[in-house]
């Protein structure tokens, strides 16, 4: 199958790297699970923005119903009305997201990929193609990105191929927090019941502290080993550790005592006032419930 990923009509795209928001993977996986039995794969439109430096940020996507003849790889039909409608609806929600390409599930590109890629080339300039191995054929949830590159002799385009480009994840801070909860939930399902489903701030803090101590332990052991001459020291690690240690602000004990005391007093005062407010609120509620029936 050498010639499968070649098609005519593409041109060199400026895209150098694709940054994918995790929500896109969730959407693709969900779409794949909802496919009909006769579908070999599912496709959909990717939304996002193209940066001037050549990175394409994929921040959203939506499914696109399509049908293709499995045997001949020749006929592909996409539901254009659906695509248009979804696109219009999305523009009402988010004006900064534009179509940037399309996704498909599977492990390799083929002739129908080429046809679909041509279709998207009309939707947006230089579409990117995200290939998600939702069938887990390769044994892992693999994500690859492709752009089309044109082969030209003089001005005549001969053919073009789908060339892979690097992909990375780009989660926002809140998305990371959300994913962290999902990671923990997965470990819970596997039997690690040490965590509640929705941990509170203080429970999370406890976990973070534990993790910090764990990491300090690892670092401490490593440093001890290097000092004892058992392991050869790594210069980069050493520099990094030294830099980290110098970042701890140095202050004399009395200043720190002062700062610590002040902060602690503030926080305790807040906690105390909160308790007081809570009591007042209960009293207020009780007062509101008094019977106003006039006595005859």
């Amino acid at each position: 199958m050498e010639s499968t990923d070649i098609f005519v009509g593409g041109e060199d795209s400026g895209a150098r790297q694709v940054k994918v928001s995790p929500v896109v993977l969730f959407n693709v996986a969900d779409h794949y699970q909802r496919r009909t039995d006769d579908k070999r794969r599912v496709i959909g439109t990717l939304l996002g923005r193209v940066n001037a430096n050549g990175t394409v940020e994929v921040t959203n996507c939506f499914p696109l119903p399509h049908s293709e003849k499995v045997k001949e790889f020749k006929e592909v039909a996409v539901d254009n009305i659906y695509n248009e409608t979804m696109h219009t609806l999305h523009r009402r929600l988010n004006t900064t997201e534009e179509p940037v390409g399309w996704y498909a599930t599977g492990t390799e590109t083929d002739i129908s990929s080429v046809v679909i890629h041509e279709f998207y080339a009309r939707e947006c300039r230089n579409p990117v193609h995200l290939l998600v191995d939702a069938g887990l054929v390769s044994g892992r949830f693999d994500v690859n990105a492709f752009v089309s590159t044109a082969y030209q002799i003089n001005d005549r385009a001969l053919s073009s191929e789908l060339r892979p480009i690097p992909v990375c994840m780009k989660p926002g801070k809140a998305e990371k927090v959300g994913l962290d909860v999902l990671f923990k939930n997965r470990r819970r399902e596997e039997g690690d019941k040490s965590l509640p489903i929705m941990a509170s701030e203080i429970e999370n803090l406890e976990k973070s502290m534990e993790r910090l101590l764990e990491l300090l332990d690892v670092v401490g052991k490593n440093v001890d080993a290097v000092v004892a001459g058992e392991v050869e020291g790594n210069v980069t690690t050493g520099r990094f550790l030294a830099e980290t240690l110098t970042m701890v602000p140095r202050m004399n004990a009395s200043d720190f005592e002062q700062l610590f005391g002040d902060n602690m007093r503030d926080l305790l005062m807040v906690a105390y006032l909160c308790k007081l407010t809570q009591t007042q609120l209960i009293v207020a509620e009780k007062l509101l419930a008094i019977d106003t029936t006039p006595k005859h």
Binding site: P22, L25, F26, A29, D30, Y32, Q33, A134, L136, R140, F141, D142, M169, L179, L182, F183, N185, R186, E189
Partner: peptide
């Protein structure tokens, strides 16, 4: 989460 999403989560 479905098993498929869990697979993706392991990857992430």
């Amino acid at each position: 989460n479905s098993s498929l999403i869990n697979a993706a989560l392991v990857e992430l």
